Deep mutational scan, measured.
Amino acid sequence: NQASVVANQLIPINTALTLAMMRSEVVTPVGIPAEDIPRLVSMQVNRAVPLGTTLMPDMVKGYA
């Protein structure tokens, strides 16, 4: 099963992502692949992401 990127904390809108904000977890539906975590660092979210939410490509500016 593919691990996805999950929010490790509440991430406010327009926040630049850091490693501490993300974790890898096997979830359904599948979100951004966990191997993309290094690429996500310093990218901004375009909405508030609650703790435990799977990051989807449309939630991260410049990812999709």
Rank of each mutant, 00 (worst) to 15 (best):
N1K: 04
N1Y: 12
N1L: 14
Q2M: 12
Q2I: 10
Q2Y: 12
Q2D: 15
A3Y: 12
A3R: 05
A3S: 12
A3D: 14
A3F: 12
A3M: 09
S4A: 04
S4Y: 08
S4L: 01
S4M: 03
V5L: 05
V5M: 02
V6I: 12
V6A: 04
V6S: 03
V6H: 02
V6T: 12
V6P: 00
A7M: 05
A7C: 03
A7Q: 01
A7T: 11
A7L: 04
A7N: 01
N8R: 11
N8A: 11
Q9L: 15
Q9D: 11
Q9W: 15
L10V: 09
L10W: 10
L10R: 06
L10E: 13
L10C: 15
L10N: 13
I11S: 00
I11W: 01
I11D: 01
P12Y: 12
P12M: 11
I13L: 15
I13V: 12
N14I: 03
N14V: 03
N14W: 11
T15R: 06
T15K: 04
T15D: 06
T15V: 11
A16Q: 14
A16D: 07
A16P: 14
L17E: 01
L17R: 00
T18A: 11
T18P: 00
T18W: 03
T18Q: 14
T18I: 07
A20G: 06
A20Q: 11
M21C: 03
M21N: 05
M21E: 02
M22E: 01
M22T: 02
M22K: 00
M22D: 00
R23N: 05
R23W: 04
R23F: 04
S24H: 15
S24E: 10
S24N: 07
E25H: 05
E25K: 05
E25I: 05
E25Q: 08
V26Q: 08
V26H: 06
V27Y: 03
T28K: 03
P29N: 12
P29Y: 10
P29D: 10
V30S: 10
V30W: 11
V30K: 04
G31I: 01
G31S: 02
G31H: 01
G31F: 01
G31C: 03
I32F: 03
P33H: 12
P33Q: 10
P33K: 07
P33Y: 14
P33V: 14
A34E: 14
A34D: 15
A34K: 04
A34V: 11
E35H: 06
E35G: 09
E35A: 13
D36P: 01
I37G: 06
I37C: 03
I37N: 02
I37L: 10
I37H: 03
P38I: 09
P38G: 15
P38D: 14
P38N: 15
R39G: 11
R39A: 08
R39M: 15
R39Y: 13
L40S: 00
V41F: 13
V41T: 10
V41R: 08
V41Q: 15
S42I: 03
S42D: 09
M43C: 03
M43G: 03
M43V: 04
Q44N: 15
Q44T: 13
Q44G: 05
Q44Y: 14
V45P: 03
V45R: 00
V45G: 01
N46W: 13
N46C: 06
N46P: 03
N46M: 13
N46I: 15
N46G: 08
R47T: 06
R47L: 11
R47D: 05
R47Q: 08
A48M: 08
A48R: 11
V49R: 03
P50R: 08
P50A: 10
P50D: 13
P50V: 09
P50M: 13
L51S: 12
L51M: 14
G52P: 00
G52T: 03
G52M: 10
G52V: 01
T54M: 04
T54K: 05
T54S: 04
T54D: 00
T54V: 09
L55H: 00
L55P: 01
L55R: 00
L55F: 09
M56G: 07
M56H: 06
M56C: 07
P57C: 15
P57M: 10
P57D: 06
D58F: 13
D58T: 13
D58I: 13
M59D: 08
V60T: 02
V60F: 07
V60P: 01
K61Q: 08
G62C: 12
G62L: 11
G62Q: 11
Y63H: 03
Y63K: 02
Y63Q: 04
A64I: 14
A64H: 14
